[in-house]
Write a protein that binds this DNA or RNA. Structure first.
Lengths: 221, 221
DNA sequence: ATTTTCTATAATGTCCAACATTTTGCAAAA
DNA sequence: TTTTGCAAAATGTTGGACATTATAGAAAAT
């Protein structure tokens, strides 16, 4: 294998390949609808036929790659319509998760949310002052962690998995917005403040409303 | 390859293996939490190392098999808690899909639903009069088609995919209920009649209520 | 009894080869 | 010029042999 990631974090070759390709799809190095020829991929990322196919199967199950019988793999398309669909589902899933967490979450949950909000604050600041690929990924990761934290007291592992999956599918679009300078950081800061209040006060309607705004902002409209 | 399915329907070897193993998991031949050793599986179902791993990856993405790094695959566990979680998500997804379909569906959609309801009626009758594995699968398939038909005007491919996935995860439990004679066919018949009325009248609250009962029945409580 | 070490088993990864399908390029026909 | 059909090339799919690495359970040592 040649490059793409550290063997220490990514246990197996397949995982290393998966995170490298996943990242390149996130950043648009591998473009939507692009055909993923096994030979080319092996050339770029290394790995055997076997490993690469397994890698693509994994990415297929994450929804960022699509497989067609006898016709190989391609990067999942990324149209305006796709974005709408992804965000529709993401919103519904995260809304439900948040509602369940609000009902069942204890102080530890609140703490996790507050911590995640803080991390997002820092990531927002960092990505504005030094915008490169590394900080962009860290920023996105912080946002993801917040979404996950909000659902973490839902008690539904499958709902949480789904949220993670659809967040992953929206990543490409989010990073594109960031790159194009179309993120409203002021609005994000406001929502964070309000979300923290709403959660600690357990005001479901208000918290859900903010979540709607937050995910709606990913539409970039 | 030895046996398990027809090459004509299942395009590739991997798909043939997948449907054979999927079916055996559905019927409990491969039991929850059972370790799936590649060598054993190849012995039983045929296929090469490569094909079998790819098959298991596919089943993993469907949620009926789980993979652990360096420790291979096992049949997804099937506890009471798993069932609750699956049905929670299934209900929410199908509810949303039904609501969207009710808003956007045209006459063609209504026709599909009516057709699917009819097919379920026939399947219910058949499985009661001649209960074997074949009719059981046909019955389950008819129920699945109805769920899919209800969502088919939602306009959200990802929501539909999710519904299909979670339906697949609940199949084992549904077939177990059927085997144990714990399906209330009279109640099902009533719900079908009411559902058809509610849908044609576009009464959302009533239709959603029936869906809740229908999926709730899968709890077997 | 607990911990450590060793070993058999199984998973993971690579290479190579054969075969099937799809796509492509080119020529012939309309 | 466009369309159609066919052959060649590219690509995907499957299989098998084998090397490497990790895990789990047995055996040994404390």
């Amino acid at each position: 294998m040649l490059f793409g990631g550290r063997k220490s974090e990514d246990d197996t070759v397949v995982e290393m390949l998966a995170s490298a390709i996943r990242r390149d799809i996130s950043f648009g190095v591998l473009r939507p609808d692009q055909k993923l020829k096994l030979a080319d991929l092996r050339q770029s990322y290394g790995g055997s036929n076997h490993s690469m196919r397994e890698t693509l199967r994994i990415l297929t199950s994450e929804g960022v790659v699509e497989a067609t019988n006898q016709r190989g793999f391609r990067v999942t398309s990324a149209t305006e319509e796709d974005l709408r669909d992804i965000l529709l589902v993401r919103l519904e899933v995260e809304k439900l998760g948040l509602k369940l967490s609000l009902k069942q979450g204890d102080v530890a949950w609140e703490s996790r949310v507050v911590a995640a909000l803080h991390a997002v604050r820092r990531a927002d600041a960092l990505v504005q002052e030094r915008p490169d690929d590394v900080t962009a990924l860290e920023w996105d990761e912080a946002c993801r962690d917040l979404s996950m934290a909000l659902m973490s007291a839902s008690g539904s592992p499958r709902l949480t998995d789904m949220a993670a999956q659809f967040y992953g599918q929206s990543r490409r679009f989010r990073l594109a917005l960031l790159r194009e300078g179309r993120i409203d950081f002021a609005a994000r800061a406001t929502r964070r403040t309000q979300l923290q209040e709403a959660i600690i006060a357990r005001e479901e309607a208000r918290a859900v409303g903010i979540l709607e705004d937050e995910i709606g902002a990913d539409l970039g409209a």
